[in-house]
């Protein structure tokens, strides 16, 4: 009997894990000019729509002391920047291509997206 219960809860937990991590709803934030991004266990917002051909200032503020998030990489814009804890770090980008561009932590564990329209 206990084996059936454990199996049942096992399956439910796996489904929950799948739902929790892979099926989250992602909101896109529209930004123009300046956008503040909070770095704390991930990026908030992590899906940002920015205008094409205009300079957008991304202001990162890291509140997470974990070394994982100490760097932010915008590979398509060739930026790798150290984010000083509890301070604002500004990164200016001027997208010359439309599309979706990933930004991530230095080790590629945490991700965010810039959508250039």
């Amino acid at each position: 009997m206990d084996k059936i219960i454990v199996s049942f809860f096992g399956v439910v937990s796996i489904l929950f894990t799948y739902w929790f991590f892979f099926m989250k709803r992602i909101d896109t934030v529209r930004a123009e000019g300046t956008v503040n991004i909070l770095v704390d266990g991930g990026y908030k917002p992590d899906r940002i729509s920015i205008p094409y051909g205009q300079t957008t200032k991304l202001v990162f503020k890291r509140k997470d002391s974990s070394a994982c998030l100490e760097e932010v990489v915008l590979a398509d814009f060739k930026v790798r920047k150290y984010l000083v804890l509890n301070e604002k770090t500004e990164i200016e980008i001027n997208p010359t291509k439309k599309g979706e561009f990933d930004f991530s932590c230095g080790m590629g564990m945490f991700h965010g997206k810039l959508i250039v329209k």
Partner: peptide
């Protein structure tokens, strides 16, 4: 402490990592 802090704040974003 830092492991917990990092793990909990990631979970709030529904992200899982090493921590």
């Amino acid at each position: 402490y830092d492991l917990y802090k990092a793990a909990i704040s990631s979970l709030r974003h529904r992200i899982a990592n090493m921590d």
